[in-house]
Simulated assay, not measured.
Amino acid sequence: MLLRLTRSLIGTVIALTAMLTLGSSPSAANALTEKASASDPGVKVDAGNSQEITGSRQGGRDLQSFAERVRGQVPELRAMNAETLGSKYQVLEVDVEKMLPTPGCKRGKETLILPEDVTEIRYIPGSIDSKETAKPCSYTVIWDDPAPNQKTQDDPSAQPSGFSAQAEPPYAENYASYCAARHPGTGANTSWVDACYRYWVEKYDGNASWNYYSAHVWSTCGVSVDSYLTSCGRGVMLASDSPTGYWLDWAPSGGSPPGCRTIDNGITLWNVGVSSSYTSCEEQLVYKYTEPGKMSTYWKGEVPDNQTRGTRHQTAVRVGQNDGRPTWSNWFNSEGYYCGGLGLPFCL
């Protein structure tokens, strides 16, 4: 059932984090850091602090711009017209200042674009990523994706017939693809984020005890005119309502220093892999956690408004044969400062 925020928001947590630095300069932010508690329940987005604008003229423009940017990354979006996009995605104007009033932090309104059928969205001060130090005005945006159909049998005992040469079992199947976005508004953080993700499963793996899944996630970040981008990150983990998962594989295997190179982003499920790679010339930070499936990657630096930066990774887990598909929590973050065309020392 499609969800609108004017209805009650229900569900469990799949996370999308936006570590947003608002209302302080880089130097001031470095003078004071804060690590938020992951147990902080935050503030739920509801009709009292947000407005759905999908059907408005502005919402339509935001949605169309979003679709044009991410169409090449998620095949399902390529064939969607404006009407279909409006039924699959929702555009929300969120009053962050009302939800998280903090002295010294300029938090106004911003725009979120999310799949239509998400169940709950919350704003949490700080970062859920314990290996990242949050700036004083940062906050996290968490949402719950709809739970997958747990009646789906990804490894039935009977092997199908009639496969093409490209899909002989076992094979990796992309069973879900989504994108989300954050657009800056009246707050001090001038950065924007497009974040996409694809979920994979190995079909007909031949193992009677386990099924094998991966989440391939990535983001692209930029800033408004006369601003500088200083951070872009992406994270994923198993949601609290997910079937129990166990570490299987992850990529990249670790961080890398500055210098142009191709980074392997492919993983192995059981018999088959999900291949991927990307090129980077700057430092990439990679954090893998002990919790199965939990991983994040970050770009850090300083680039002006005519450039974008991004990061990506892939994480894989195994789940009991009859336990159903995993539910993934996603987060992204970005930080940007308005500099009036004068450079970082003059940023607000």
Rank of each mutant, 00 (worst) to 15 (best):
103 P>I: 01
152 T>C: 00
148 P>D: 04
133 T>C: 02
145 D>R: 04
107 R>A: 09
123 Y>P: 02
155 D>C: 09
121 I>H: 08
108 G>L: 08
156 P>T: 04
146 P>A: 12
102 T>L: 09
139 Y>W: 15
154 D>Q: 01
105 C>W: 02
118 V>W: 10
124 I>E: 06
114 L>R: 03
157 S>D: 11
144 D>Y: 06
99 M>V: 09
161 S>H: 10
160 P>F: 04
113 I>H: 00
142 I>R: 15
140 T>E: 14
149 N>G: 07
109 K>D: 01
122 R>I: 02
104 G>E: 00
119 T>L: 12
121 I>N: 07
131 K>M: 08
117 D>H: 08
112 L>W: 08
146 P>T: 11
151 K>T: 08
163 F>E: 03
151 K>P: 00
144 D>M: 10
134 A>W: 05
132 E>F: 14
120 E>T: 15
123 Y>Q: 09
113 I>L: 11
158 A>L: 10
155 D>F: 07
156 P>V: 00
133 T>I: 07
162 G>V: 13
103 P>M: 04
112 L>P: 06
110 E>S: 03
142 I>A: 14
137 C>Q: 12
106 K>R: 10
151 K>Q: 09
160 P>Y: 02
121 I>F: 12
103 P>L: 00
103 P>D: 04
140 T>M: 06
144 D>E: 13
128 I>C: 05
153 Q>G: 01
149 N>V: 04
132 E>T: 15
125 P>K: 08
136 P>Q: 12
139 Y>S: 05
145 D>P: 12
127 S>I: 08
138 S>D: 15
154 D>T: 06
104 G>Y: 03
144 D>T: 15
164 S>K: 07
127 S>E: 01
116 E>F: 07
101 P>G: 01
163 F>Y: 14
156 P>C: 02
118 V>L: 04
165 A>T: 12
144 D>G: 15
137 C>H: 08
131 K>R: 13
103 P>S: 03
138 S>Q: 15
153 Q>V: 12
119 T>I: 05
160 P>V: 07
108 G>M: 11
143 W>N: 11
114 L>N: 08
140 T>K: 07
155 D>N: 15
146 P>D: 11
99 M>T: 09
131 K>C: 02
126 G>A: 09
136 P>V: 11
149 N>K: 09
139 Y>V: 03
100 L>A: 05
132 E>V: 14
157 S>F: 04
141 V>W: 10
142 I>M: 11
164 S>A: 10
158 A>T: 14
107 R>Q: 02
140 T>A: 14
164 S>M: 10
104 G>I: 06
155 D>G: 11
115 P>W: 08
137 C>R: 06
114 L>A: 05
152 T>H: 04
127 S>Q: 10
158 A>E: 12
151 K>E: 10
102 T>E: 14
133 T>M: 14
160 P>I: 04
147 A>W: 00
142 I>P: 05
163 F>A: 08
129 D>V: 15
151 K>I: 00
101 P>L: 00
134 A>N: 14
144 D>N: 13
102 T>Q: 13
140 T>V: 04
161 S>M: 12
116 E>H: 13
107 R>V: 01
106 K>M: 05
153 Q>H: 05
108 G>Q: 10
100 L>W: 06
